[in-house]
Design a protein around this nucleic acid. Structure first.
Lengths: 213, 213
DNA sequence: CGACCTGTTGATTCTGCTCAATCAACGTGG
DNA sequence: CCACGTTGATTGAGCAGAATCAACAGGTCG
């Protein structure tokens, strides 16, 4: 349960506005959430935003009949927890052990412009994902995820999958069996290579990009 | 091409914060966009937000291979046009003839808090739709749309569909033939009645709600 | 070692897509 | 007024992609 605040400074997702925001915020302690730990639950009273110091967080929504949709993964340098109402309509969990700093913006002189920008970025990302879920087949969805992760991790050739197949499936709106089959398929086509179950080497980036045309 | 600013005051979607926002803005003229007219195009320079005085607007995204995803419909009282970057990643079109007021927020003393709230509401709505596209079948998607429209139009029994089948399909991530078939199916089950092609009477609201469980 | 969990693979089913025909509503021009 | 073309909506037949159900492999931990 060791905290590594130094991760924060080196991550490519780190944005100027986020830094501004952090600077203007009250210093708050970093809380470590082990794998699978709940950061907030669906229905909890909403309030402060959350900043990812390190690790990966999933934002999920559960329907009455038990189906789960993951609306976003957040990694180091990102802010999550925006809610329109006064309670959380989604819940947040640590995927792989994550350090979270609470941003106390309840009242006072928070830099609202920065917050607006962050909210809009969340919106933009969600809209992108909407396109993926609405108009892409399973192969294309997987390709989009791999490219997205590759970009966010700043590595053109190697992608780390901090989440397991089930999470990927619930993010892409498919089943985990289909995730397996598609990776198998991409492997057979020499588009990727599975160095490990959660470590994927991109052999043919163009092929992936073509799928996301 | 007659403008009816009085629509604005009576629509249920009208929120206090939107009113605040409007009050604080420079008065701007209302532009009328006839059916199918482009309000802004994908790739256009982004800037001011847009306020719907009356009518219905669709926000669309086109992929390289021509598939279209409608990410949102906006009706009277709503604000659209948030963009993370400096150009529009989606385009906006009038569905049925819409009156749009441009909100000049470029710089100056705009009420950033209100904007943030509006952006967050857009985000919340988009996340909801993500759940629909990711984890719902065609029937359930249609049911969700009908209930959503019913609520936004403030009428429990009658839903007006300002958009045509093609738009519904691209919003729900299915084909227009499937939209037709599902309406047929709902009609056969006595859940709805088609008073006209774009006028749907809800006979069994509970059945619809069960589908969205 | 055995229990369990995650991931992979196979067989079968089914939802929704594609392709295609038909129909109704509407506008235009003879 | 009517024949014609156009556009949007509906319906049908066949097919494909992904889900479901099920078996099995590998790894981890008690």
């Amino acid at each position: 349960m060791h905290i590594q605040p130094s991760f924060r400074a080196v991550h490519p997702a780190q944005q100027n506005h986020t830094l501004d925001l952090l600077g203007a915020m009250q210093p708050a302690a970093v809380t470590f959430y082990p794998e699978g730990a709940v950061i907030y639950a669906q229905g909890d009273k909403a309030g402060p935003l959350h900043f990812v110091e390190f690790g990966c967080v999933r934002i999920c929504r559960l329907s009455a009949d038990g189906r789960r949709q993951i609306t976003a993964f957040h990694t180091a340098g990102e802010v999550f927890g925006f809610e329109a109402g006064d309670e959380h309509e989604s819940y947040a969990e640590s995927v792989d052990g994550a350090g979270i700093r609470v941003l106390r913006t309840a009242n006072g002189a928070e830099p609202a412009g920065s917050l607006l920008l962050l909210a809009i970025k969340s919106l933009a990302r969600t809209q992108n994902h909407l396109m993926v879920l609405g108009r892409r087949n399973a192969n294309e969805r997987m390709a989009a995820l791999l490219l997205d992760l590759s970009e966010r991790q700043g590595n053109d050739h190697l992608v780390h999958l901090p989440m397991q197949r089930n999470d990927i499936a619930d993010y892409l709106g498919i089943t985990f069996e289909t995730v397996s089959r598609i990776l198998r398929c991409l492997k057979d086509q020499r588009v990727v290579r599975l160095k490990a179950v959660n470590e994927i080497e991109i052999l043919d980036r163009e092929a992936l990009e073509d799928m996301c045309a």
